[in-house]
Simulated scan of single mutants.
Amino acid sequence: MFDVLLAHIQEKVTLSATDVAVLKSFFIPKKLRKRQYVLQEGDVCKYLLFVEKGLLRMYHVDEKGTEHMIQFAWEGWWMADTYSFLSGDVSEYNIDATEDAELLMITLENFEALLLQAPVMERYFRILFQNNIISKEKRLVNTISYSAEEKYTRMAAANPQLLQRIPQNLIASYLGITPETLSRIRKKLMKSK
């Protein structure tokens, strides 16, 4: 169950056998069925989630009932409402499984203990948090600077395999466009090939 997590960590830092044993002791394995929630708006985000298998989505539902996709996480990705997880305040987001999923979950208390007992993990998470900040800045620039077609082609270039796994209406929501606009863009791009 820890294969993907250990491979992901070892791409960034070197773990000793002791680090691996310590790390495994702090995580809780969890299986989710498609559409099953791991966080609902109004609850506190109690876990930092690592996806071993499957696909998760994080989204906000506005007062009109419209879903706004914030993030997707698939094999080798982390997900949480970071603000709620770190502050203990209630979340404005929902996280559920878009596909059946296998997760490794860690509480804030265990996260802090892990960093103390396996100091190499502090470096690993610093690298992740830096990459996350960069990714969020790029997403902000994409959102305010590019046309709907450019947003879609950039997403397709960055994660082509994901487009096969994520329903079109969720992709449209993530890009901040209507499903109809996404359909027109896809048709136009298919004709130009």
Rank of each mutant, 00 (worst) to 15 (best):
I144V: 15
Q36Y: 08
P119C: 09
F111Q: 12
T14I: 04
A101E: 01
S16H: 11
T18F: 00
K30Q: 15
Q71T: 02
Y59R: 06
Q130G: 01
M69R: 01
K24V: 01
I133Q: 13
F129S: 12
M69L: 06
S145I: 04
G54L: 10
D19S: 07
G54V: 14
L49N: 14
V38N: 10
P29L: 07
W77F: 09
R126Y: 13
M79R: 04
K138R: 15
A21G: 02
Q130E: 15
G54Y: 12
I134L: 14
I106A: 09
A21F: 02
A73Q: 06
Q40K: 15
W78L: 14
Y47D: 10
A21S: 15
A21V: 04
K138E: 12
F72V: 08
R57D: 02
T107E: 10
Y124C: 02
A113Q: 15
L103G: 07
L32P: 04
N132A: 15
M58V: 00
N142Y: 06
L116E: 15
L114P: 12
E102N: 02
D43E: 15
T107H: 06
K46E: 13
M79S: 04
V44S: 10
E149H: 00
E52D: 08
L114D: 12
L23C: 11
E102R: 01
V141S: 11
Q36L: 04
E109I: 01
I106L: 10
W77R: 10
E63V: 08
L32N: 03
I127C: 04
E137N: 13
Y93K: 08
Y47L: 05
D19L: 11
L115S: 02
M121Y: 09
R57N: 01
G54M: 08
F111S: 11
A97V: 05
L115N: 08
G76C: 08
L39T: 10
M121G: 09
K31Q: 13
Y83V: 14
R33L: 14
L56C: 04
L32Q: 05
W77L: 03
V22S: 01
I127V: 13
D19F: 08
E149G: 02
Y146T: 07
I95E: 01
M58R: 06
R123F: 00
T18L: 06
T98F: 00
S135H: 05
P29G: 09
L116D: 13
A148C: 02
K53Y: 12
R123P: 02
N142T: 12
N132W: 06
E75P: 12
